[in-house]
C-alpha cells in the first residue's frame, strides 16, 4: 500500500518536474526558433547558445516586485493565475507517456507511466479540467479593472467554449475506434500496420479529425493564429495586461504547460503515442526507456510545430475566428465521427 503511494508520488514528482523543466526549454526553443525563422540571432549571451537565458528570466520574474494595481479585486486578481497553473499541471495526470507495463519499483507495480492509471474517464477528465481553465482567464480579465483585460477575458471565454466543442467532437471518432476513454488503451489500439507499411495511427483514417483537433488545440492554448485573448497589437496584453512578476509568470508557465499537454494529446490520439510502425517495444526497463524516447521525440516535433506556426501566420480577427469555429470546425468534426461510425459499421476500421 505505502509502496503504491510512493510510486504515485514519484510519478507525480517526475511529471511536475518534467513539465516545469519543459517550460524554460520551450521558452528557449521559442526564442531561438523564432530567431532562426526571422533571420535574427536570438538570446545568445547567457550560457552556451543562450541556454541559461530562461533561468535568468525566471530569477528576474521571481525577484520582481509583487505589484497589485489600484482598483483590482484583490482576491480574484491573485486567484486567477493560481487557477491557470493548477489546471495546467493537473491535466497531465491522466496522460501516459511511455510503455510501463509489468514494471515494478520497490516491489510495487508501476501500472504504466501514468500518474492516475485507474481513472477510467481519461480524456474526459482532461476536457473537464481544460474547460475549467477558462475561468482563470475570465477572472483575470474581469478582476484587473482594465478595459483591455476585460475584452481579452471575454474574447477568451467565447473562443474557448467554441473550440472546446470542436475539440471534443473531433476526439469522438478516436474513442469509437479504440473503445476506451483511457489514453493508454487508445495508444494500444494504434499498434500494428495496415498493408504492412501504413502505421495504424488514427491520423490516417481520421485525417479530418486530426486536423480539427490540432486547430482546436491551437485555439485552446491561445497561440497564434488564435492568440486573440492577448492579441498584443489590439489589446496590449489582453487578460494579463495588469499582471507582473510571478503572477504573470504563472500565466506564462500555464500556457507552455498547456502546449505540452496539447502536443502529448495530439501524439497519443492521432500519432500512435510511443509506437512506431515495424517496431515491437520489448518489455522491461529497456523497452520502457525506448518508448519514453519515442514519445518525447514525437511531442517535441509537435511543440516545434506550434512554434513554427506561430512565427509564420498572422492572427485571425475575432468574428472570423468564431465563424471558423462554428461553421467549419464543428461540422468537420461531426463529419469525422460520422465517417468513423459508417466505416466501423461496414467493417473497414
Amino acid at each position: 500500500m505505502w509502496a503504491d503511494a510512493i510510486v504515485t508520488l514519484i510519478k507525480l514528482a517526475v511529471v511536475i518536474g518534467v513539465l516545469l523543466t519543459t517550460v524554460p526549454i520551450m521558452v528557449w526553443v521559442e526564442r531561438r526558433g523564432s530567431a532562426l525563422i526571422q533571420d535574427r540571432l536570438g538570446p545568445n549571451r547567457v550560457g552556451p547558445w543562450g541556454l541559461l537565458q530562461p533561468v535568468v528570466d525566471a530569477v528576474k520574474l521571481i525577484t520582481k516586485e509583487n505589484l497589485i494595481p489600484d482598483g483590482v479585486d484583490h482576491f480574484l486578481y491573485i486567484l486567477a493565475p493560481f487557477i491557470a497553473l493548477a489546471v495546467a499541471l493537473s491535466t497531465f495526470i491522466v496522460v501516459p507517456f511511455g510503455q510501463g507495463d509489468g514494471l515494478t519499483l520497490f516491489g510495487s507495480k508501476i501500472h504504466g507511466f501514468i500518474v492516475a492509471p485507474d481513472l477510467n474517464i481519461g480524456i474526459l477528465y482532461i476536457f473537464a479540467l481544460a474547460a475549467f481553465g477558462v475561468y482563470s482567464i475570465v477572472i483575470a480579465g474581469w478582476s484587473s479593472n482594465n478595459k483591455y483585460s476585460l475584452l481579452g477575458g471575454i474574447r477568451s471565454s467565447s473562443q474557448m467554449i467554441s473550440y472546446e466543442l470542436a475539440m471534443t467532437i473531433s476526439v469522438v471518432g478516436v474513442l469509437m475506434a479504440s473503445s476506451s476513454f483511457r489514453l493508454d488503451q487508445v495508444v494500444m489500439a494504434q499498434t500494428g500496420t495496415w498493408l504492412g507499411f501504413i502505421p495504424k495511427w488514427n491520423v490516417f483514417p481520421q485525417i479530418i479529425g486530426a486536423i480539427t483537433f490540432m486547430v482546436a488545440a491551437f485555439a485552446e492554448t491561445n497561440r497564434l493564429p488564435f492568440d486573440l485573448p492577448e492579441a498584443e497589437a489590439e489589446l496590449v496584453a489582453g487578460y494579463h495586461t495588469e499582471y507582473s512578476s510571478m503572477k504573470f509568470a504563472s500565466f506564462f508557465m500555464a500556457e507552455y504547460i498547456n502546449l505540452v499537454t496539447s502536443s502529448a494529446l495530439i501524439v497519443l490520439l492521432f500519432f500512435g503515442g510511443w509506437t512506431l510502425p515495424g517496431l515491437t517495444i520489448p518489455h522491461g526497463w529497456a523497452g520502457a526507456i525506448l518508448s519514453l524516447v519515442i514519445f518525447a521525440a514525437k511531442v517535441a516535433f509537435f511543440l516545434w510545430f506550434f512554434v513554427w506556426i506561430r512565427w509564420t501566420l498572422p492572427r485571425f480577427r475575432f468574428d472570423q475566428l468564431m465563424a471558423l469555429g462554428w461553421k467549419v470546425m464543428i461540422p468537420l468534426a461531426v463529419v469525422n465521427f460520422l465517417w468513423v461510425g459508417v466505416a466501423m459499421a461496414l467493417g473497414i476500421l
Binding site: 523564432s34 526571422q38 533571420d39 493564429p225 492579441a231 497589437a233 512565427w311 501566420l313 498572422p314 492572427r315
Partner: peptide, 16 residues
C-alpha cells in the same frame, strides 16, 4: 502593419 496583424516574422525580414 503586419506585426499588428500578428505576423511578426515579416517585420524582421523588412527590418533586415
Amino acid at each position: 502593419n503586419l506585426v499588428d496583424l500578428g505576423a511578426l516574422t515579416n517585420f524582421w525580414y523588412f527590418f533586415q
